[in-house]
Every structure is written in structure tokens, then in C-alpha cells.
Design a protein around this nucleic acid. Structure first.
Lengths: 349, 349
DNA sequence: ATGAAAGCGCTAACAA
DNA sequence: TTGTTAGCGCTTTCAT
């Protein structure tokens, strides 16, 4: 179908090696360069990356495994990361595992068969779905958003604990004492972190911490709605609530509307992620924001760096052993967008 | 690094063809099957899909080109499609071209080099970014959401005109006469279709159609906000508005809140896409919904079918020529989710 | 700077 | 059913 290097060689009367050299930025006599370029144009030649991949044992492809593509937070990161990787010549194979550990395993396996050069992952569960295979094969992994005990790799995290702490502190500073939280599932890393921040803020401010002030929402819209209702019914004296992810923020707002709760007069609210939603809410929501673009940039950069390290290590085999597995963990700061959903309570401490 | 078929052959004392046959579901003597499976397990053998792809000229990979991954409508479709394709053994390479025709060209080229077997695309512009190359190579393309004159391929569309018409009709039936529309960019297929539906509904109902009642919002949040303000300022007697995509719906709602417009008392609103946002709005928005899962299913099915057709055509070469390029265009119905954002006006016709 | 030739891991004739 | 062999399109020594 398409022309191959052989065709170019024949057409130009040159050898295969010369064509290859030309294609890979090697030195070629001016005269030949022109001939080659002409032939390429006339024969519509395009490098076959598959063949190249077979030979070099590098597919120039990165696998991405995420819990949900259909989720703005993840989607924003992936968009950025894909863009950066592609600009470096890397294709990305995205696998959405629907927050299911079984599917996650399949996805990792799938990508392994496809011989991707590296992985960017947001692990769903707490146990390794097969990352070790990649590590053993010397293929770098960058973990995003969540950390994992038994897998040794680079991590790009967000200061979830700090974010939650800061949010709750803002409520405390506004004079609130009975502050509820809608937390995520216990088995999710970020959820635990955010919960810890909430508890820390309360402790340090000598505010009340009661079991009943924390409801779990499972990181879903429906979960957020249910948790909100539960909190509202069980805590008539609660004056503020901190919601710890986007989906639950949406769900909670739905429920708040249904219950006819006036924000911020009856209840102050701080949500999470998605500035657009926050701005379109009535009243505008105050929210914690995550640096999605930065996460993507760090992740892509880290991975590409590791990949290049590996490439050059092949050429100058000398340092084959002293390649210490130095892994980096970057923790990024969150942001805060002020809305009108927090009311200064009577007493300001 | 990993074991190859050769290793398995050596280990079992069998020939390469036998191993290959086993791997591809051929018949192998029970005794040998066991030996092979044992060797595979012990050597941790995994098929190298890259090598297989080189040989068969099939990468079992589908390219997806979309304007924005970071957009719920697209993301929902992609998630579904990826899932279906993967379950059929196809990997997907997603390229987000940021609604930029230049990037779109690059993406199509990129995927061509990667030798993907087929394409699912939502074209950004109106001219071919390189699809012909795929068609010429016999690689199927399925176009989603938008249609394109000069490219002959299967299309999965949505009845945009009907959707808009229906929405506006609802407003008319509720007694509205001065109905505004926030339309999308003129060069986007769906935008034109939706606008046509709006105009048709007005015409058929003898309602007023004035230039000033239509504002263009560019399919973005900011655009939607600006268009809303413009409509509101120029049409003091407008009692209802139809917003023709999700982002603009969000933007319009922000502006409505900022302007202090009471919905639906002062203004009735019908938005587009994203049920979650609609439900979380105050009041709950009435919206047009698109069948994202169905779109994905149709697209994936159509593509897979074409792919299989092509595969079997290779084996039974007889019908090489009578492979008519029969292309299908499916148009799916939209849905409507009733909220509380439409008020019955005084006079009901 | 260029050419010849070997081989990456697999599939697919063709033989046996 | 199984083994042998020849490539798929590229990169990469090793000569020249």
C-alpha cells in the first residue's frame, strides 16, 4: 500500500542505511538529501512507526489509566498530558477503568501487551493491578493524584490535607463552629487526606468534632446529595459544610436546592473543583481548586525525562548498574476561588 | 527482555507455527497444548502486539480525533466508545485538537503514521484535515456529531434541528412569543442545524423572528454569558430563551444570576446537555439531552463491522471489487428533561 | 557518507 | 497437526 524505505532506496539509487540516516537526522550529502526528499514526496512515503517500534523496542506510546474519563478533574489533566506527550512524539492510549479494580487490571495488562513505553496512572484500588511488571521491564510509571505503598515510582500529588485544612480554617475564621464535612470513600487516598485536613483544622481551632458532622458521599453526585440530606437532618445547628470533591458538590447543591436551604444565610458552603460550576451556582460557590494543568505538566515532564534517561542509557551502556531508582514525589498546592457562599457568622473569633 | 515465541518453541520442542496456531485459536494436540501453556506460564510469555501488527498490517488500534476532551458531551462518548472498542481488542489513541484545524491536521497525520486501523472523528473545521488518506488506504472512518461534504464515510448524527425545534415549540406552547436563542458559531455543523430548528419552529408557529432575538455565543462559557447579556439588554420584552449547547448554558446561567434575572418568572430558559448541571441549577433547568451512550455504541459498532468486513475480505479475496462503498448515516433522537425553568405565560395559544 | 546484511517477534504459505 | 522458511519495514553494526 504505502511506500517503504526500500522504495525510496530503489528510487534514489541509495542504500537503505542512507535513507534511515536521513530520516533520523543523520548526515547526508546535500545532493542525496534533495533526491531523497523528492522521492519521499513523489511516493507519499511515511515512516511506519510500527516497524520502527518493533526494531527499537520503543513504541513511543504512553498508557494512561484513570478511574473515569468522564470526570472534569481527570479529563482536564488527561487533555493537557496528551497534548504535551504528543508534542514530544508520544502517542497515548487512554484506558478508563470505571473505578473498577478488575477493569484496572485488565487495562494494565492490555497496555503491557501493547508494549507502551511508560504509564501515567491514577490507581483505583489500594493494591497493585500489575504495575510491577512495568517496573521490572524498566518502564517508568508516574502516579498521579494518589499514592500507593507497594509500587515504587514517581508521584505527582496535590496537598489534599492542606487544601481541606485551609477550607475549614476559612469557615472557622468566618465564625463557624459546627462545621460539617461530606467526605469521600475510605479506601480512596485523596478522600482520607482531605478528611485528615478537616479533622486537623477542627482540632487546632478547638472546634467541635462530632461523628455526626461527617457524612460519606462516595465521590458521586447521588452520594453527595444523600450525605447532604443526612447532615442537614442530623445537625440542626450546623452552620457550614465542606464538600470534598466535585461530584459531591453538585449533588449537595441539588439537595440544598430541594430542601430549600438558603446559602449562605442558613448554611455556608465550600465545595471542590470546577470553577465553572461554582460560578454558575446561586450564589457563587467558594471552592478549592486543583492545579490540573500543572499536574499534567509535571507528570508528562517527569515521564519524558525518565524515558530519555532510559534511551541514552542504552547507548552508553557503561552506567547500566548505577541507575539508582531515584523516584520523586511532587506535591502541588491547591488554590481557592472565593464565591459568596460563606457567611460571616455572628461571632468571629 | 520478555520471552518470545521462539523461546516457547525451544522450550516445548515444537515449531513456531504450532505456537502461533495455538495463540490464534488453531487446533493443537491436547498434549502439546498443555506443554505450551506450561511454557507460557513459566516464561511469562506475552504476545508482542507490535510485531503482530507489523506482520498483519493491522495494529488493532483506533484513532479518535475530537475537538475537546475536556467537555462532558465528548468525554461521555469517548468513554463509552473506548470501552466497547477495548472489549473487542482494539486500543484507542485519542487526540484532542482543541477545536483547532491546524492541530486537527497534525493529529490525523500522527495517527496515520501510527497506522491505526480506523478513525472515529468529530471534525472541527469544514475541510478535510487528511481523512482522504485513510479512505484511500481502505481504512474506515466513522464521523460523529458532525457531517462533512467531501468525505465519504459513515456518520452518526443527532437530530439537532428536531431537538431545537422541539425545545422552541415547548416554549411556544407555554405561551411565549418573544423567544431568544443563543446560537453557536456559524461554521459549526451542529450550530447551524440547531439554529435552523429554532427558525423553523418560529416560522411554523407564526411567532416573531427578529434578528435581535438571536445572539451568537461561540459554544463557550464566556460566549454564552456575553450573548445572554446582549439578548437581555436588547430585548426587554423577551420572555424566554433557548440556549443551544452546554457551555453556553453554563455561561448564560452565570449571567442570569449576575443580572439578577428571576427564572422562570422573568425569563424562561431551556438549555442543552448535561443533566447533572441542570438538576443542580436553581431552578432546575429544562434541557435538551443527547444520547451519548448510543452515539458511542453506534459509532463503535459501525467501525468494528467495517473492520471485520475488511479482514474477511482479505481471506476470501474473490469479492475484492464488489466491495461497494456503502456508507450509512444514522440520525439519533435527542431527549428532553423537564425542569422548572419554563413558566406558562399569560396567553396560551 | 554510504551500502550490505542481519534481525526485531510475529504470521502465513508450503511441505511433510 | 506440525515444522520450515520467508518476509512485514525498519534500525544498526560493520565494511567501504
Amino acid at each position: 500500500m504505502g511506500a517503504t524505505m526500500k522504495d525510496i532506496a530503489k528510487r534514489t539509487g541509495l542504500g537503505l542505511a542512507t535513507i534511515s540516516s536521513y530520516l533520523n537526522g543523520g548526515n547526508v550529502r546535500e545532493k542525496n538529501r534533495i533526491k531523497i526528499e523528492e522521492a519521499i514526496r513523489e511516493l507519499h512515503f511515511e515512516v511506519n512507526e510500527v516497524a520502527r517500534g518493533l526494531k527499537t523496542n520503543r513504541t513511543k506510546t504512553i498508557g494512561i489509566v484513570i478511574p473515569e474519563l468522564n470526570n472534569i478533574f481527570f479529563a482536564e489533566i488527561i487533555t493537557e498530558a496528551e497534548d504535551i506527550l504528543r508534542s514530544h512524539g508520544y502517542a497515548t492510549m487512554i484506558c478508563d477503568c470505571r473505578s473498577d479494580t478488575e477493569r484496572e487490571k485488565e487495562a494494565v495488562d492490555f497496555l503491557y501487551h501493547r508494549r507502551v513505553d511508560g504509564l501515567i496512572v491514577m490507581p483505583t484500588g489500594t493494591s497493585d493491578p500489575g504495575f510491577q511488571k512495568f517496573i521490572r521491564a524498566g518502564k517508568p510509571i508516574v502516579m498521579i493524584d494518589r499514592k500507593m505503598k507497594d509500587v515504587c515510582c514517581d508521584c505527582i500529588l496535590v496537598d489534599n490535607e492542606g487544601a481541606a485544612e485551609d477550607a475549614v480554617n476559612r469557615l472557622v475564621r468566618a465564625g463557624h463552629r459546627k462545621i460539617g464535612m461530606i467526605a469521600g470513600p475510605e479506601d480512596v487516598y485523596t478522600a482520607r487526606e482531605r478528611q485528615r485536613g478537616y479533622e486537623k483544622a477542627l482540632r487546632e481551632n478547638n472546634a467541635v468534632y462530632e461523628e455526626g458532622l461527617m457524612a460519606r458521599g462516595n465521590y458521586t453526585i447521588a452520594g453527595g446529595a444523600k450525605a447532604m440530606r443526612q447532615l442537614w437532618e442530623n445537625n440542626p445547628d450546623m452552620t457550614a459544610v465542606f464538600i470534598s470533591n466535585y461530584e459531591m458538590t453538585v449533588g449537595a447543591m441539588m439537595e440544598i436546592n430541594d430542601l430549600g436551604i438558603r446559602v449562605p444565610d442558613e448554611l455556608s458552603v465550600i465545595g471542590f473543583d470546577n470553577v465553572d460550576f461554582a460560578k454558575a451556582s446561586v450564589p457563587r460557590l467558594s471552592i478549592v481548586t486543583q492545579p490540573t494543568a500543572q499536574i499534567a505538566q509535571e507528570a508528562a515532564d517527569t515521564l519524558i525525562e525518565k524515558l530519555q534517561e532510559r534511551d541514552s542509557a542504552v547507548n552508553q551502556k557503561e552506567d547500566g548498574q548505577d541507575r539508582e531508582k531515584t523516584t520523586v514525589t511532587v506535591t502541588l498546592k491547591t488554590g481557592f476561588v472565593e464565591g459568596c457562599s460563606v457567611k460571616a457568622s455572628e461571632k468571629v473569633s
